[in-house]
């Protein structure tokens, strides 16, 4: 084990793995429950007379609201430590990624702190999601043009 590669192999081999089964079980039931909650909310908004599209949007806003509240109260990260991808992947994770830097960077001021840093975590999702949609839009535009 004289060279770096051998050392890295040794380090990677011995490093304890995350408890995959436990993590997956937690991600499944928490993530599934958030989606289930969304489905129930959707049914509620539909029953109150919202159109299918509006109901979907209202579900997103409601989930974003509860995630922001949990983040502000300091309980989101405790839940996420247990749930992993179960809270990360649903829109709850996106909301937490926007709200957490906002609270955290308040000490640097509302312009250069909150204003400039609010998308430090969620920025990649917005940028590359939008970029993918623009690329798709261009292809679709050409497709519509010739069909």
């Amino acid at each position: 084990m004289t060279d770096k590669q051998a050392y890295l192999q040794y380090v990677n081999r011995r490093a304890a793995r995350s408890p995959v089964l436990r993590n997956c079980a937690a991600a499944f039931w928490v993530g599934g429950s958030i989606c289930l909650g969304g489905q129930l909310l959707r049914a509620l908004y539909r029953a109150l007379g919202a159109s299918p599209d509006a109901a979907g949007t209202l579900v997103s806003i409601t989930l974003v609201f509860f995630s922001a509240l949990a983040t502000g109260l300091g309980i989101f990260d405790t839940i996420a430590r247990y749930a992993g991808a179960g809270t990360l992947l649903p829109i709850t994770g996106f909301a937490n990624a926007v709200v957490s830097p906002a609270i955290d960077t308040k000490s640097e001021g509302f312009v250069l702190g909150v204003g400039a840093k609010i998308f430090t975590v969620a920025g990649p999702v917005l940028l590359y999601g939008t970029a993918a949609s623009v690329l798709y839009g261009l292809i679709y535009w050409v497709y519509v043009l010739f069909s």
């Binding site: 304890a16 957490s100 609270i103 955290d104």
Partner: peptide, 17 residues
């Protein structure tokens, strides 16, 4: 945490090492 990792309220898991 703020300087080297992520905002304090950000929810994530850390590896065992």
């Amino acid at each position: 945490e703020r300087q080297f990792r992520l905002p304090l309220e950000y929810g994530g898991q850390r590896t065992p090492t």
